[in-house]
Structures are given as structure tokens and as C-alpha cells.
Write a protein that binds this DNA or RNA. Structure first.
Lengths: 195, 195, 195, 195
DNA sequence: ACGCACGGGACACCCCGTTCCT
DNA sequence: AGGAACGGGGTGTCCCGTGCGT
């Protein structure tokens, strides 16, 4: 790897956390400077603007998320859903990124500004739901799950519950909300699966 | 009401929406000026600082929320929970405030800055959960609900699911997520209640 | 005078010296900040850009020059020329502006950039020459000076000699060059006048 | 001449013009790059810093001047002075260096910065005056010139007049000023010489 | 009570000089 | 010798909060 690329990777990695904690609008380049140890010139050598850096940083954040969730999609059948829930539960002890779930943050943080960033967050959330829905539908087709359940709806509920619990956990600084949500979803899943 | 007070009320009402949409840090006084038609002097006559205005605005936002939820707490027994869920479902068509749920926004928007604002949002979320938990516990004590359910946990799950669904709705601009979450919770509730 | 106007006048007065010493391109806004005690916002409140400030500053510089030279034009006949030379000679002890003659500086400093500034400097130099030439021509018409002398040329020589001597004085830090030039011109004038 | 030396000579020659036109502070390395066709690394291979390049460039500029003035000092007696004036007059049609007289430019351009450059310019101006003064003194000693004239002062006046006229010519883009100054000096010289 | 101008401060982006690596 | 990379400074803009005038 060339010198510049490793520097660029460093910037992106640090900036991803800074942006995730402070928001894109709330973070100044000086914060990125402090986090990376580089000066302004060194940062603007790799990115034309703050927005470009923000986009690359979010891309990095989603890549970190993807790496965390990679084992989830390796599971078989409904175990995918269980692994997804457990992985989310792990956010409490071992967050993939400082500042919480980047999807949640990006959804709220960027209102109208940064439509690109918002689109990326949307894409990640959609991918999660689609994958979960596909697994649930497959389970139904194999007769392992109750057919009257709306797979798409359940996938949405799973993601929503976990993200919402993450928010409550962040707000109250109490990881219990995440545990409750995970337990609730697993419990609900048991009844939906067994037939 | 004196002249000044009505002006103050106007400022707070408009500022609440502006802050809810753009965030406290992202909103400039000039935005408040545009929203109220007043000039800077007119605003700073009523509030010492932007932060003070933000606090008063959030107070206003919670008051609006409280008014919206007032009928909920008038219900009897578990109907309180059902009414709570339905009220949340109504967010999609008729949001109490432009920009979405102020609790959700405040939870994400204010990371470390504005600890007072964060505390207020936390208090609202806690109040919701405590009231729902109390209702559920009362229902259990009266033998109307299954005793093995953790009332506090369920209250947390309800709030988390709805707030999370609100986030997904905002992210995808699709109110369906909220519907799914509400349906799911009502469905779950039915099974918990009937015995 | 309103508050802002006095501030503006202060900025212009200080900036005129800074620009005259360091040149427009060589002077940073931070130098103006240090010279005025104001911060950047306070300066840019009064001027849209550095160039606009530079123009206003040069306008101030020419006004200072005009005030210094005002008594010169009050003189009668060829005494105007003598007074002009003596006033220039006074530059050595009491420069009208720190950094030397703004006309000389502007002529060299602004090569292609700042054509407006260059035009102003040109106008001042032209005015001097025209006034001197008019005086000399009047003297010739009254028969007080030798008619074979080219008034326009002599006016040019006077200004050129004094500005050039000013340059040598600046370069060698020796006011003698200015004295020599003044003495030479006065001596030459004597022979041209008496007939 | 080795390859590197010819490159160095090319850089110096081009840079001398760039610096003479834009000033040392006003010229960027990128301007030198554009003028030479070299890249930054190619330039910094030969010069440790911009200032060192500026100094070498000014040295080159003075060498060009010296070559132009070499025939002047070959003349006999007061003809040296006449040749000096005529050579200066030739500046208008055939400037030795783009951007005007480097002595004049250096005197104004470098205020405090680049004291070395200033010293070089001073040395050139002094050398001119001393040589002219020596010639004039020699003429007086030989009884060819009026003894009451201050040779040193006249030398200063000659240089000052010509440099000042050069400035006016540059400012007004009219070579006439230079002609007038030359004519005036020659005319004055005639009267000083004849006895 | 409200408008406006003013000043302080921070920030994004740009450009330049210099060094290092190739 | 080329070119990327980095440090530093500079410009213009925005915003917050204050004070004066109305």
C-alpha cells in the first residue's frame, strides 16, 4: 500500500467515528485534525470537501458494519435471524463504531442536507430487511414457519425494535433496553417458527 | 395575555419546529428569524441565548406531545397501551411536530452538547415507559394479563419498537414500517392479555 | 459620526500604512487585524474583500498626500514648483505615510493585479505633472520663464527626479539623495526662470 | 557544461523574469514551474529554497544588467555618462529584463524581507553612482568640467532621474518620460561640461 | 419592545512551500 | 526529475450575541 493510501484510510477511519459521534454538521475539520494528527492540508489532500470526506467515512462505517454482520448471513435458515438479533445485542458491549449505529445516526442527523449519505443509510437498512425477509420467506416455504406471518413486516419490526432499543439505550445509558428487545424478538420468533 | 408573552409563545412554537427539523446545532438564529418574521433583536429580547431558546422550544415540544398523549392516559386498563400504540401510529398521518418525534431527534441530535435537552428527552421516554409498565403491572395484578411477562421490559419494547419504526419510516419515507410495528405490538399484546 | 464609520476610518488609516509598507499582496488580513486591534469579522463587516479594503486604503493614502500638498497649490507662479520640491524634500524627515510614497509603491507593487489601484496612482502622478506644467506654462506666458523650455517635459522630470531620489533614499537609507535631487531641481529652475 | 548546470541556468533565467514581474513574494513556485516546464522536484533539486532561487535569480538579473552596461564603462571621459544615459534610454525599446529595472523593483518590492536581495540592489545602484562620480571627478580634475559641481550629487541625480522616469514610464505606459529625463540630463550635462 | 449594525470567533476551502519517495 | 504528500497560513463567509437607536 502506498503512503497516501494508508493515510487516507486512517483519516477515513477516524473521521467515521468523529462524524458518527458529532454528526456531519456538528463536526469541524479541526476535530478531524485532532483525531488524525494531520493538519488541514494533509486532509484536504485526500478529499476535496468535507462532504466528500463524510461520504467516504460513512462508506467506511457501513463496511465495518458489514464485516460485523458477515457471519450472520452465513447461518442456515432462521438461525440467520437469531444471529442478526444477537449481533445487534452485542452492540451494547462492543459497538462496531463509537457513537452508535451509523444507520440510526444518519437517519436522524441528515434531514435534508447530505441526501447521498441518507441514501446510503437507507440502502443498508433496506438490505437488512430484505435479507431477513428472504430468510423468513424461505423458512415459510420449507414449512418451518407459520405461513400467516408477513415476512416483510416481521423483518421491519425486527430492525425497528432493535434500532429503537439502541436509541433508548443511548438515551438512558442503560444496555437493558437492548437486551429486552432482543429477548422479546427471540421469544416472538420461537412462537412463529415452531408451528 | 400580554403582547410580549404572545410573541414569546410564537417564537417558541416556530422555533420548536425549526429545531426539531434541523437540530439545535444545525439551526441558525436566522432560520428562527425567517420562521417567526422577527429580527434578531426581537428574539433575543425574550431569550438570553440560543440554548435557552432551544430548551424552551423543547419544553414546548414536550407539551405538544403531552397534549397529544393526554387522552391515552384517560383510558382504562390495558386500553391505555392500545391507545398509546394507536396514537403513535397516528404520527404518520398527523405528526405532532414537523420533523418527527422530538424524543427520537433529541436522543440522536444532542450527543454531549445540551445535556439539559437530553435529560428532558430522557424524562419523557422514561415517563412513557413507567406509565405503560404501571398499567401492565396493574393488569397483571388484576389477573387480566399473563403474570410471567416482565411489564417493565414490555413497556421498553413497546416504546423502542415504535420509535424504531418511526425512524425507518423517516428513513424510507414509507409509513408502512409504523403500521407494521403497531400491528405487531397489538398482536403481541392480545396474546399477553387474554390469558 | 456613527460608530461604524469611525471604525471604518480607523481600519482604512491603519491598513493604508500596512499596505504601503508590505504591499497589497504581501500584507495579510491578519496584519490588518494586528494593526487595528479588530478581528477578521470586524474588518469584513466594513469591506467585502481585501481588494476593496486596499482600494479604500489607497484612496485614504492619496487623501493624506493631497492634504500634504494642499499648501503647494496655494502658492503663486513658479513658487508652486518650488513649494512642490520642498514638500517632497520634507518626505525624508516627515513622511506622509509609513512605507514611503504610495504612488511609487503602487507603481511597482501592482504589476497586473489591482489595475484599479494602479489607475489611481497614475491619476495622482498625472495630476501633479499637469499642475506643475500649467504653472510653468503660465510663467512662460507671463514672460517670467524661458520660452524654449518644454513645460510638460520639465514637469515630468521634476516628478521623476524626486520619486527616483526617494527610491534611492529608501534603498540606501540615506536622505541625502533626496536633498541632492531637490537642490538640483531648484538650481535648474533658477536658470530657467530668471531669463 | 553539464546537464544539471544548463538546467540550473534555465531555471535562473526564467525565474529572474518571473520574479522581476511579479515580485518574489508574489511569484509562486508554480509560476516558475510554468515558466521553466519543470516540476517542483526538478527545481528543488537545484535550489534549497525559494529564497535561494530568488537570490540566484537576482544575481542573474544583475549580470544581465552588467552585460548591458559593459560598453558604457569602456567609453572615455564624460562620454561614459552620456553612454549611461543613452543605455538607460534604451530600456524603453529593449528592456534588459521583463518587468523593468530590477534595481527599482527590488528597492520597492522587498521591504524588510529578503535583506540580502535588497543589499544586492543597493550595491548595484551604488556602483553606478560611484562609477559616474569617478568619471565626473576625473573630468573636473582634467579641467573639462566646471569644478563647482558636486560630482557625487550629480551622479545620484542622474540615477534618480532615470529610475524615476522609468517608474513614470511604467506607470503611464508612456516611454516619453524616459526620453524627457534623458534629454534633460544630457542638456544639463552639456552646460556642466563645456566650462 | 423591536430593528439594525457591529464586533468576535470559528470554519471551510484553497494555495503555497517543502520534503520524501519513486 | 516527477509527483504525491504534508504542514501552514490566508481568505472570505457565517453565525452568535451585544449594543445602540427607534
Amino acid at each position: 500500500m502506498r503512503k497516501g493510501e494508508s493515510t487516507r484510510a486512517l483519516i477515513v477511519a477516524r473521521a467515521a467515528e468523529v462524524f458518527n459521534v458529532q454528526g456531519v454538521g456538528g463536526a469541524a475539520i479541526s476535530d478531524i485534525m485532532a483525531a488524525t494528527g494531520l493538519k488541514k492540508g494533509g486532509i484536504y489532500n485526500h478529499f476535496a470537501s468535507k462532504e466528500e470526506l463524510a461520504l467516504a467515512s460513512f462508506e467506511h462505517a457501513t463496511a465495518v458494519l458489514a464485516r460485523r454482520f458477515a457471519p450472520v448471513w452465513e447461518e442456515q435458515g432462521v438461525n440467520v435471524v437469531r444471529a442478526f438479533i444477537e449481533t445487534f445485542r452485542g452492540y451494547a458491549q462492543r459497538p462496531p463504531l463509537a457513537g452508535g449505529c451509523p444507520v440510526l445516526n444518519a437517519a436522524i442527523d441528515s434531514d435534508d442536507t447530505n441526501p447521498a449519505l441518507r441514501a446510503r443509510a437507507h440502502a443498508v437498512a433496506e438490505e437488512w430487511q430484505e435479507r431477513l425477509a428472504a430468510v423468513l420467506r424461505g423458512s415459510q416455504e420449507r414449512g418451518e414457519s407459520r405461513p400467516e406471518i408477513d415476512a416483510v413486516a416481521l423483518a421491519s419490526v425486527i430492525v425497528a425494535s432493535l434500532e429503537g432499543a439502541l436509541m433508548l439505550t443511548k438515551l438512558s445509558d442503560d444496555p437493558q433496553h437492548l437486551q429486552w428487545a432482543a429477548d422479546h424478538l427471540l421469544d416472538y420468533l420461537e412462537r412463529a417458527v415452531c408451528c
